[in-house]
């Protein structure tokens, strides 16, 4: 544990609030992941964690280390940008996989594939 008493409250309070905001949103997202009924509903839940959940924690980290070091520490932005780019890819692919499997099993209430036929025919 390092001593944070050199920091002023003007830094500590925003850092704390951002941390609480980020972790609460991530927690809410996983609560949704547990309690929602269908897969397509659950697909929405983790986006809470990957949007403002992550943003809150990363901003808190940027603020804290910048204040501690007395210079702009921005390397958390790399994780933020990376997550911003990769989350759509994984969720899209997961959604398509679910759609594909549900169609193959003829689950009710799933929109049918278009005339071209199979879902996921492009790579």
């Amino acid at each position: 544990m390092t001593d944070f008493d050199t920091l002023s409250l003007w830094v500590a309070v925003p850092v704390g609030l951002l941390l609480v905001l980020g972790s609460t949103l991530t927690l809410l997202g996983t609560v949704g992941l547990v309690q929602l009924k269908s897969f397509y509903d659950r697909l929405h839940a983790p986006t809470l964690g990957t949007s403002w959940g992550t943003a809150g924690v990363l901003l808190a980290s940027i603020l804290l280390f910048s204040a501690l070091d007395g210079r702009a520490v921005l390397h958390e932005l790399v994780i933020g940008i990376f997550l911003l780019i990769t989350t759509p890819v994984t969720l899209m692919l997961l959604g398509r996989a679910a759609l594909h499997r549900d169609r193959a099993e003829k689950v009710r209430g799933i929109p049918p594939a278009r005339a071209r036929g199979d879902a996921g025919s492009d790579g």
Binding site: D3, F4, D5, T6, L7, S8, L9, V11, A12, V13, V15, G16, L17, L19, V20, G22, S23, V57, L64
Partner: peptide, 14 residues
């Protein structure tokens, strides 16, 4: 209320 108290509270919660 010191800065490290606020922060340790927030860290614990997070």
């Amino acid at each position: 209320m010191s800065a490290s108290f606020v922060l340790s509270l927030a860290f614990g919660y997070a």
